[in-house]
């Protein structure tokens, strides 16, 4: 097998039982696997390849094509900052800069305390509230650099309690 960290592959059993034999389900399986592991470890990808009869090359190809998939672990909270047109026009760049400075990370990175990962996305479809970000399942609109930093600090405070 591969030389990566060992994941608990039994967690995949249910997903594979449901989808492995359904044609064209590779993306669905990877989405569900990512829900389980938080990301897609290499050994999980190999297991999926084996169970679905795909070559590892194909599974890797799919896992690296779509931006939703992550091959490395992310922080506890995922910040998805919208960089859509409306958000761009209304100052998403300044918001991004403020978040990066606050967390001392760049797009795609995870803060040192492991609490936040930042990912810019094309459009969250909440253009009227632009600029917008989503932290986990929650959407925050009409951001300013100060407001965005405040939101992050609040989550941090809650985490510290």
């Amino acid at each position: 097998m591969c030389d990566c960290a060992k994941s608990d592959l039994t967690l995949l059993d249910g997903i594979l039982a449901e989808y492995a034999s359904v044609r064209g389900s590779l993306i669905t399986i990877l989405q569900k696997a990512q829900d389980v592991y938080g990301y897609l470890p290499t050994d999980v990808l190999y297991r999926v390849a084996q169970a679905t009869g795909n070559t590892p090359a194909k599974v890797m190809g799919v896992a690296t094509f779509y931006t939703q998939f992550r091959l490395t672990p992310v922080g506890k909270h995922l910040i998805m900052l919208c960089k859509g047109t409306a958000c761009h026009v209304n100052g998403a760049d300044a918001v991004e800069k403020a978040i990066c400075e606050e967390l001392k990370i760049k797009d795609g990175e995870t803060s040192e305390d492991g609490l936040f990962s930042l990912k810019t996305v094309a459009c969250l479809g909440c253009c009227s509230l632009s600029p917008v970000m989503m932290i986990d399942e929650d959407t925050y609109g009409s951001l300013t650099p100060t407001k965005a930093v405040e939101i992050i600090r609040n989550i941090r405070k809650e985490a510290a309690v």
Binding site: T55, A57, K58, M60, G61, T64, T67
Partner: peptide
């Protein structure tokens, strides 16, 4: 990638990544 898959029937080589940063990569696992 295509001859490896279609002619050699091996599928060892694949495309990894997207857009400008796409690369061809072999996957060996055993």
């Amino acid at each position: 990638v295509r001859v490896c898959e279609d002619q050699a029937k091996k599928g060892i080589l694949g495309l990894v990544g997207r857009g400008f940063h796409t690369v061809v990569k072999p996957e060996f696992h055993d």
